[in-house]
Computed example of a mutant assay.
Amino acid sequence: MHKISKEKLQSKSKVGIILRPSTPEIKENYFIIKHCFEKHNIEVFLERSSASMIDEDGYDLDMICDTVDFFASIGGDGTLISVVRRTFKSNKPVLGINLGNLGFLTDLKIADLDNFLDNLETDNYRIDSRMIIKGSTNIKKFFAFNDIVISRKSLSSMIKIDAKIDGKPFNSYFGDGVIISTPNGSTAYNLSVGGPLVYPLTDVFIVTPVAPHSLTQRPLVLPADFEIEFTVSDNQGAVVIVDGQDIYEVEHNQSVKIQIASKKGKLIHRKTRNYFQVLNEKLQWGK
């Protein structure tokens, strides 16, 4: 039976803020949010690249990770994913503040923040621990909150990818590529190509082929204690796309090994947030 975590912040006096990149017009919203935190006696530490974007002073991310009690991501789901990936090793939870349409991950708008911080003071909130996956090649290591995609380089040809579980061959994928998703990412690219929705607080891999040549290739859900290895058999090599944000090249016969990371990504949510209600609203089930 699933149980909601009872983890709480040990202190709530310092927050690190990271803004959606390439949007200097976010400055006015930032000061509204900063004032709201300070009204609740929470000191704000703005990350340096975010600060530079709006002509303010900021702090190095490593210093912020060592200093703050939690982070706030200001933007959308993409910004939140980036912040979790950059900070999860510090074990500091992230609060997502959405500036547009409410997403699957960011359920708080600026107008909700003051009331939420009242609830934060009285421990009326929750912290969700989300699975992170670690990928590695012979020269690179990377982490994903949503998914790792191994994709063809050329639009004019398909790609062949041989897959192993714990060192034993189990499949060969021939098509446009393959998605290795966390439950968090089951509502992202995985969903758009027919992969299953998976409850986000579980620990499993979702392996979903993209436009497979054979219709017998189906999505696969695997326990997260496996190590999965994908070897690119295509002479042209492939590209590895991490959370839709970072891209790496993989050469012919190079392997990508994927396993669960040793630490979780942590999200701060309202206690009343209901995952299935979010699915109902975002996917318009029953309409």
Rank of each mutant, 00 (worst) to 15 (best):
L117H: 04
F174R: 00
D107S: 11
Q277K: 15
I97A: 09
L113F: 03
L222F: 06
S52F: 05
E121P: 00
G175M: 05
K39M: 10
A261R: 13
E227M: 04
S136V: 04
I148W: 05
L95W: 14
L113W: 06
K92A: 06
L61K: 15
L117D: 05
I179N: 02
D118A: 12
P21N: 08
P196D: 05
L105R: 10
M53N: 05
F31K: 13
L102P: 15
G286W: 07
H252E: 14
D57F: 12
D203E: 15
G135I: 11
G75V: 12
A261P: 06
N274A: 06
C65A: 15
S129R: 03
G195N: 08
D112V: 03
P183K: 10
E251W: 09
I139N: 12
A238Y: 00
Y199K: 13
I165L: 13
F174Q: 05
F37E: 05
I42S: 00
F170L: 08
T87P: 13
G244S: 05
K282T: 07
R20A: 04
F70K: 06
D66F: 06
F174V: 14
K134E: 11
V256A: 01
I258W: 03
I127Y: 00
R130M: 01
S11T: 15
V239A: 11
S13A: 15
T67E: 03
